[in-house]
Design a protein around this nucleic acid. Sequence first.
DNA 1: AAGACGAAAGTGGTTGA
DNA 2: TCAACAACTTTCGTCTT
Length: 301
Amino acid sequence: MKKCPECGDTQLSHNKAKGEVVCRSCGLVLEDKLIDFSQEWTEHDSSDESKRRTGAPMTYTQHDQGLGTEIGNSADLYKLNNRSKFHRLIKWQRRVSTAIERNLQLALSELKRISSVLKLSPAVEEESARIYTMAVQRGLVKGRGLEQIVAGSVYIASRINDCSLTMDDVCKASGIDKKMLGKNYRFVMRKLEIKLMPADPINYVYKYASELNLSPMTQTKALKLIEKIKSTGLNSGKSPKAIAAGAIYLAAIMNGEKRTQEKVALVSNVTEVTIRNRYKEFSRKLGLTKHLAKAASKMEA
DNA sequence: AAGACGAAAGTGGTTGA
DNA sequence: TCAACAACTTTCGTCTT
């Protein structure tokens, strides 16, 4: 039997949770860092949260990144005796939260709103929140309107994640005009030194092709055309939407699935004139005029 | 009549002085 | 900060199928 070296008492207490052995009479800790050999229960389904070993993941979509302590002000509070004390604590919590945190709270609720309108993926939402947080910390929001920077962050995040979100989409969802959005997202990018690749037309092809009910073959054709266009440098300086629209129009004709310029213009938000200019240029410079003529004569037959 | 075409004038963004 | 510039849009009259 083990004895306490201090007082000689044999009444020792094992505290498994802490991994300690403590003398009951004098309180001396005889051993610590005991290994617990009992069964380990971890959560493999979500049936019992009490067995979880981790909390919620850290996230930028909450103003304190999900790590802060909140003093509850729920109904529980009113069961307590010294209510006034807790009210005081709540008041202090509010005061302690800095201007930045308050700003973030507002901004992130706006972000949530935009995100739900645009059905953003969690990854993009997270990225937007991260960009916005950095922007606030650098003081970029001052005098610029919080919504503007939120919208800018969303646009940047969507570009980084290659999702086919246009400035128009973000404008509609956020209620900010295009001019301001453009100004602000570039401002944030410059200040945070975020480098953005020009949007890839390929991302638009999938969207347009499905909205036009084009066959997978035609979609592939359009993708191949874009590869060619890129490799010959025909894409530089031109709007990726226009390139995608032109390539789709061309591919549809070549595969005998012609869609009118009007329809392509409608789904791509590019005018017919631009589609014409692009597809003419492509067919001329890629030497496709013969193919086109062939496809056209097939249509006749 | 629908679709394609292209000229002309205007807009917003980029670039370079 | 300003002007020049290319890409793109809007509008509209004409041609083709």
